[in-house]
């Protein structure tokens, strides 16, 4: 059973958003020697050492699934305490306040920011391999060529986060990190060796990075102390 394995050291739990390429994410972690489990309860979101929030689908459907399962609060607590949590593509956008893709539907709201439609000279959706730049102080993110499949973007790296950016007609946020939390607009699970190396760094460094960080809010600090 899934639940029996969650809670052991080093376990990776994947949130079934209902609109994700789950198997691609699972196989990427298997290649790194892990045995990822698809999560089936809010308790497991609390217990898992690592949690992945993947997504290829629509913002509205992804949020509806998290709400239906009643997992919003557990995910918020993880992110606000900066525990090892990885958002991929739609997963990055779900961590934020909102998206123009689904007006009126709030995101998890852990991070302030709103996704807007890609515009400018680049074709939409952005499909393929694009270069990103990352600041040297980033623990996980590095410059390189990675795989994107998106129609929406964040315009600015959220305040207080370390971010990578790219250009597709216009500048966009390629990813950001803080503590043990990493959010990627691109797909590390589909970005070949560079993607695998990024996932590996996150697995190796995120627990210590989470320990060394203070959390986003007083509430998160209190939750982490419990």
């Amino acid at each position: 059973m899934n639940a029996a394995r969650i809670g052991t050291a080093g376990d990776v739990g994947i949130v079934p958003t209902g609109v994700a390429n789950l198997e691609a994410v699972r196989s990427a972690f298997r290649r790194l020697g892990r045995t990822p489990r698809v999560l089936d309860s809010a308790v497991d979101i609390e217990r898992a050492e690592y949690v992945v929030l993947p997504g290829v689908g629509s913002f509205a459907d992804g949020m509806a699934e998290l709400r239906r399962r009643g997992w919003e609060e557990a995910l918020r607590r993880r992110v606000e305490s900066l525990r090892p949590t990885l958002g991929i593509c739609l997963g990055l956008q779900l961590l934020c306040d909102a998206s123009d893709e689904a007006p009126g539907i709030p995101g998890l709201g852990c991070i302030s920011g709103r996704s807007v439609r890609l515009a400018g000279a680049g074709r939409v959706p952005q499909l393929g391999w694009n270069g990103i730049v990352a600041p040297s102080e980033a623990v996980f993110l590095r410059p390189g060529i990675v795989y994107f499949a998106n129609s929406y973007r964040l315009e600015e790296v959220p305040a207080g986060w370390t971010g990578a950016t790219g250009r597709h007609g216009t500048r966009f946020v390629a990813g950001f990190e803080r503590g043990g939390v990493l959010a990627c607009q691109f797909h590390p699970e589909l970005s070949g060796r560079i993607g695998a190396a990024l996932l590996n760094r996150w697995l190796e460094e995120a627990p210590a990075a989470a320990e060394a960080s203070e959390g986003l809010t007083d509430r998160a600090r209190m939750a982490a102390a419990c």
Binding site: V56, D61, P125, N150
Partner: peptide, 8 residues
């Protein structure tokens, strides 16, 4: 497209 996104 509406469920899995246009890119899918």
């Amino acid at each position: 497209s509406s469920r899995f996104g246009a890119q899918c």
